[in-house]
């Protein structure tokens, strides 16, 4: 039952992230839900634990303009691109149950775009409450909306700067009851109260 409940939560998160992006007027590249968790070991075992935001789920839509995304791969050198393809092939093998990691695969041979890579690497990340873009949004309970390459590069936040390098031009973190919804786009998107209201409706599970 616990596994079924967990799966249900995953499915619900996925549906909500997808609804958020597919229903938006703006063109978002991806959405991630950073979920509030507590690390009892790091907290010293006193029952409190250290609060952090870890990967809850994510929905990657990609870029509508294939030409733009291909262009954004061109800055990556051949060695880096080969590394990305190898990782994709290994992950495919891992997920599909241990097939040969080096086997040729259409998806593994296709160039891995910068935003795909940024999304993929995000799965390995987490943020202590108050640190990084999601952590700051959650601690201060306020939306952070960075729009334009200059805003991302000059934010002083490593994740935003990394996103800018990978072609993002808008990065948004909207806090909810138990986590933070992050949206990224390769377009410049101005702040919208409509989007924040949608996040409030879709991701405040306590209500």
């Amino acid at each position: 039952p616990a596994a079924a409940q967990s799966r249900l939560n995953e499915d619900t998160l996925q549906q909500r992230l997808q609804a958020l992006i597919e229903g938006a007027r703006e063109t978002w590249t991806y959405a991630i839900y950073w979920q509030l968790s507590y690390d009892s070991i790091a907290g010293g075992g006193d029952g409190e634990g250290t609060a952090f935001l870890g990967w809850g789920d994510g929905y990657y839509k990609g870029e509508e303009d294939k030409g733009k995304s291909k262009k954004r791969c061109s800055s990556v050198n051949a060695v880096e691109q080969e590394h990305r393809k190898r990782v994709i092939r290994e992950l495919n093998a891992l997920i599909s149950g241990g097939a040969v990691a080096g086997a040729a695969d259409d998806a593994g041979d296709e160039e891995v775009t910068d935003t795909e890579w940024f999304f993929l690497v995000s799965m390995t990340q987490s943020f202590l409450n108050g640190t990084g873009l999601p952590g700051q949004a959650f601690l201060h309970c306020r939306t952070i909306w960075l729009s334009g390459s200059g805003a991302l590069a000059g934010s002083g936040c490593e994740r935003a700067q990394q996103g800018q390098i990978y072609g993002l031009r808008t990065l948004v973190c909207i806090p909810s009851d138990n986590g933070v919804v992050e949206l990224g786009s390769t377009d410049v998107i101005q702040q919208s109260s409509d989007l924040m209201e949608k996040v409030n409706t879709l991701f405040n599970f306590n209500n």
Partner: peptide, 28 residues
């Protein structure tokens, strides 16, 4: 990122991402 280093709990997200990527690649 390495395949072996990915936490178990994130495999569902990863599987979805890879599956959709396959669909995108084969549709072009």
């Amino acid at each position: 990122i390495t395949a072996v280093g990915l936490p178990q709990a994130r495999k569902a997200s990863l599987a979805r991402f890879l599956e959709k990527r396959k669909e995108r690649v084969t549709s072009t």
